[in-house]
Design a binder for these strands. Structure first.
Lengths: 215, 215
DNA sequence: GGCAAAATATGCGTACACGCAAGTTTGCGT
DNA sequence: ACGCAAACTTGCGTGTACGCATATTTTGCC
């Protein structure tokens, strides 16, 4: 009874949502994202244009949703499946890295690069990992301090967004930088170093939870 | 020569922007936010409706901009003015708390509560403190690791957003919580505890910078 | 002062987001 | 099996976002 609420209803809703996502991605890939109207997506998914906006509140949202749809679930799964004895920060880093290193999504990752609006929507969508991460952190912290878990999860999401934003940045012409600017490394490296900055906060929370449980 | 680029041009731009902000806020306060159209704001500011969208890309943005316009500047000022010997985390917390505790903005803070769209825009606008905070942290860290500063600033902004979101939440009817739910404390408390969770990460970065400067 | 280039303002046209008030489907109690 | 209430879909209407082409202003330069 984790996700189910009312059976057929929920089932159809998810189906419609998935149909819209996939239609949006398919059309965007074959025509280019600029040549896809909302009406086209709705038609391809077999619903009215108005219904489209009951599911997604912007044209780009459906496209990026198709790309990031399962990331959140996979992050959560990787976190709960992982060994509980590892450092929370390490478990998180591993789980997240895993999701952004899959070479399977090559085309999609290239697609989001093409338009500013898509880039923006993609960064927004990355925030969706916050909820599962908050749940996972909350579990690791013993469900005691939920609001700390929320803050840490929000920070993790922010760090991921920072890394993604830097990775998405067009390699601008260095006008006269005396070699002081790092040339925007690979995504895994960017993610690692971004999350590394948060590790002390995660460690501290973990330690506090441990002390609480001993008392 | 910090902000100036070409004199008159920039000056007029800022004037137009300010006029739009203030017109938007004034109209929203006197008619209620739902009864203000973009055309009204543009007319009140003496520009064409199209020009409005050259400055703000949503109806709500102008309203919240009027409210949060100076927050970023004030945070930056408070950070650079503060004693450099204090802990970075403390300086940050103080500077931010100061900005959200001013009783002068009572009406405005009530205004953003009234509509979901406004709440959302307000949370978005809170992200504007990221840039000045990043600059300030970067300075404190000796301008060595810019990307760490960015990540930390993004996390701080995320923490602030988390606190604000919780504060904005309508006090929902507790359906059957056995007294386990904290009843959404005051904004200063929420901000303090949110930022406290990040303090260890800020400490660690500061310590690292100190060691680097000694070497 | 006058001029060419760059930045900005405006009008227009198209596509979009979303509230509202129907109509339709689903779930549940009896 | 039946019917009711809640949830979902749909069409319509209004207001909004923004690309593009054009007119206007500002600036650096001579």
């Amino acid at each position: 009874m984790t996700t189910r609420r009312t059976g057929l209803r929920e089932q159809k809703k998810q189906a419609t949502r998935a149909a819209l996502r996939e239609a949006a991605l398919r059309l965007a890939l074959e025509r280019g994202p600029g040549n896809v109207r909302v009406d086209d997506i709705a038609e391809a998914a077999g619903v009215s244009p108005r219904t489209y906006n009951n599911y997604f509140s912007s044209r780009e949202q459906a496209i990026v949703a198709a790309i990031t749809a399962e990331r959140e679930a996979r992050v959560a799964a990787a976190l709960t499946a992982g060994p509980a004895r590892a450092r929370l920060a390490d478990a998180l880093t591993e789980a997240i890295l895993e999701q952004y290193t899959q070479p399977r999504d090559r085309d999609e990752m290239l697609l989001v690069t093409t338009s500013p609006a898509l880039r923006e929507a993609f960064l927004d969508a990355a925030g969706a990992i916050e909820d599962p991460v908050a749940a996972a952190i909350g579990r690791r912290l013993g469900d005691a301090d939920t609001s700390t878990a929320r803050v840490l999860a929000a920070s993790v999401a922010a760090a991921v967004r920072t890394a993604l934003r830097q990775w998405l940045q067009p390699p601008v012409e260095p006008p006269a930088t005396g070699g002081l600017v790092v040339p925007s490394g690979s995504l895994p490296d960017l993610l690692r170093s971004a999350l590394a900055a948060l590790a002390p906060a995660l460690d501290a929370a973990e330690e506090k939870a441990r002390q609480r449980s001993l008392r």
